[in-house]
């Protein structure tokens, strides 16, 4: 596997019916262990790009590969295994409404067939880190928006994924909590996980400098190795 090109987008375009160009001719390489911000206004294609990476969306043209595996060619079982190796913080959290906070996080480990004792230890660890351990027996709808977001992050990181996709992970949080979450994502990244984070939070992008990829109407208009939220490249 070429570690320099862990994620590869080659000429990726996505057209949603009738003729909405969500992504247009995207070429993007991300190295293993990199931290990338995806920024851009609403509707610029950030979420579609993330969903292409988790293969919820198939590109109309072009190929995407992660860790040398071409996503389009994956079968159902291979896709399930691939998804176990990535963590996703969905924009709408996508929590399981009939499972408690603890069970939501544990589910990801259960499908991997992990023994109960290890699951309990890991889930306790991550829920404590997220500050929602005391809320573990509550169902998602009984948690506040911020708590749900933390829970979604906890679920995404509990399996120590090699790739973390976070779509607006700090969207509902105040700056202080956003800082905490950001610190957590940085820790995960420092442990070797590649992180791709779509965000509108200018403060975080400017404060924690990393590679910034800016999208505009489905195209990459800026790819800055260590930029801020406001780039100096004219769109």
């Amino acid at each position: 596997m070429d570690t320099q090109q862990y994620i590869q987008f080659s000429g990726v375009s996505k057209v949603f019916p009738p003729d909405i160009n969500a992504l247009e001719n995207i070429y993007l390489n991300v190295s293993k262990g990199e931290f990338v911000y995806l920024i851009g206004e609403t509707g610029s294609g950030k979420t579609t790009l993330m969903r292409c990476l988790s293969r919820e969306v198939l590109p109309t043209r072009g190929t995407i590969s992660v860790g040398g595996r071409v996503l389009r060619k994956m079968g159902r079982f291979e896709l399930a295994l691939f998804r176990r190796d990535i963590g996703v913080v969905f924009q709408d959290f996508a929590l399981l409404p009939n499972l408690t906070a603890f069970e939501n996080v544990a589910f990801v480990l259960e499908i991997m067939g992990m023994p109960r004792r290890e699951i309990e230890a890991r889930v306790m660890d991550v829920l404590k880190t997220m500050g929602i351990w005391r809320r573990r027996m509550l169902y998602p709808q009984q948690l506040s928006g911020g708590e749900q977001q933390r829970l979604a992050i906890a679920r995404a990181v509990v399996n120590e994924p090699s790739l973390l996709l976070a779509d607006e992970p700090t969207g509902n949080l105040d700056n202080h909590t956003a800082d905490e979450i950001m610190q957590l994502l940085l820790d995960i990244n420092a442990a070797g996980t590649t992180v791709i984070m779509a965000t509108h939070n200018q403060y975080l992008v400017d404060c924690y400098k990393h590679r910034v990829v800016e999208l505009w109407r489905g195209r990459i208009v800026r790819d800055d190795p260590e930029g801020g939220y406001e780039g100096n490249v004219e769109n």
Binding site: S54, E56, R76, F77, A80, L81, F82, R83, R84, D85, V88, F90, A94, L95, L96, P97, N98, F107, V108, I111, M112, R155
Partner: peptide, 18 residues
């Protein structure tokens, strides 16, 4: 009535059989 749950389970890596 559990459509949402099934969809989420698949998204986080559960196999169809599971």
């Amino acid at each position: 009535s559990r459509a949402e749950e099934i969809s989420v389970m698949l998204k986080v890596g559960a196999t169809s059989t599971y």
